[in-house]
Simulated scan of single mutants.
Amino acid sequence: MSRASVTVRLTRSQLAVIRRHAEANGVSAYQAAIRVMEAGLAALMSTAVSQPSEDPTGSALGELLARTERLERLADRALYAGCAAYTYGRQVALGGARDAKALDEVLAQSAGEAYRRQRDLARGGS
C-alpha cells in the first residue's frame, strides 16, 4: 500500500483531544492523530455502508455538525449581505464624489466608530 502525506489544520480543542488520547494510550501525538484519522474514516465508511446506529452520542454529534453547517451558511450569507451593502453604499456615495480615497477614509472612520459603539453596547457599556 502506498502512502500519501496530508497536512491538516486543527483547532486548539481538537489538538488537545488528540494529545489527551495520546497520553491515555501511551503513544505519540502523531500516532494518536493517525488513529483518529483512521477511526474517522472507518466511521464514515461504516455509516455509508450500513444504517447509522442509535447511539445517542453519535446522534448528538450529528446534530451539532448539522447546526454548525447551518451557522456557517448563515454567516456566509451575512458576510455577503454586508459586502453588498458596502458596495452599493459606496457606489451611491461615489456618484457625486470627486476624491474616492478621501471618501474611503471617511467611510472607514465612520464604520469603525459605529463598530466600536455597537461592540461597547453588546459588552454592556454605555
Rank of each mutant, 00 (worst) to 15 (best):
I18T: 08
S13C: 02
L61R: 05
L41F: 14
G95F: 04
V49D: 09
S59K: 11
D76H: 12
G96D: 08
Y88W: 10
Y30G: 07
D120C: 01
K101R: 11
S110Y: 10
I34C: 05
V36Q: 00
S53M: 00
S126Q: 08
R70W: 06
Q109S: 10
E23Y: 05
R20K: 04
L44W: 15
L65G: 13
A102F: 10
A22E: 02
S59F: 07
M45Y: 15
S50D: 15
A97Q: 07
A84Y: 15
N25A: 05
Q14W: 01
G62D: 02
M1L: 01
E113I: 06
A22V: 06
Q109N: 09
Y86K: 03
A102H: 13
T47E: 03
T7M: 00
A78D: 11
A78Q: 14
V49F: 08
R20I: 03
A114Q: 12
D99H: 07
D104G: 05
I18S: 00
E23M: 00
E38R: 09
L74Q: 14
I18P: 04
V49E: 08
Q31E: 11
R12D: 13
L44S: 12
Y80H: 11
T57W: 00
V106G: 00
E54G: 14
S46N: 10
R116E: 06
G125H: 11
E63K: 01
L71S: 12
R9K: 06
N25Y: 08
Q118Y: 12
L64I: 13
S13M: 01
R3W: 06
A43R: 14
A81C: 07
P52Q: 00
A16K: 12
D120Y: 04
T87K: 02
G26K: 03
R119H: 14
T7G: 04
G26V: 07
R98K: 08
R123V: 05
R9Y: 09
L71G: 07
E23D: 12
A114M: 06
A42E: 14
L71T: 15
A22N: 05
R77M: 01
D55Q: 02
R116V: 14
I34Y: 09
A43H: 15
D55S: 09
Q109V: 12
A16P: 14
R67S: 07
R67K: 13
Q51S: 07
Y115D: 04
A78M: 06
G82C: 01
R20Y: 08
D99F: 05
R77W: 07
D99W: 02
E72P: 01
A122N: 10
Q14E: 07
R123N: 08
G124T: 13
A85P: 12
S13Y: 08
A97Y: 09
A114W: 09
M45G: 12
G125W: 03
Q91I: 10
A84M: 06
S53F: 03
L15Q: 13
A42R: 15
A108N: 11
A4S: 12
A16T: 15
E69R: 11
D76Y: 09
R3P: 04
S59Y: 10
V17P: 03
L107M: 10
Q14P: 11
A85E: 10
M37K: 10
A108Y: 15
R98I: 05
G26T: 13
V36N: 00
G82L: 01
A85I: 08
D120G: 04
E113N: 03
P52S: 00
R12N: 09
T87A: 05
A97V: 12
E113A: 05
Q31D: 11
L41I: 14
A111L: 07
D120V: 03
R67I: 08
V27A: 00
G124K: 02
G62Y: 02
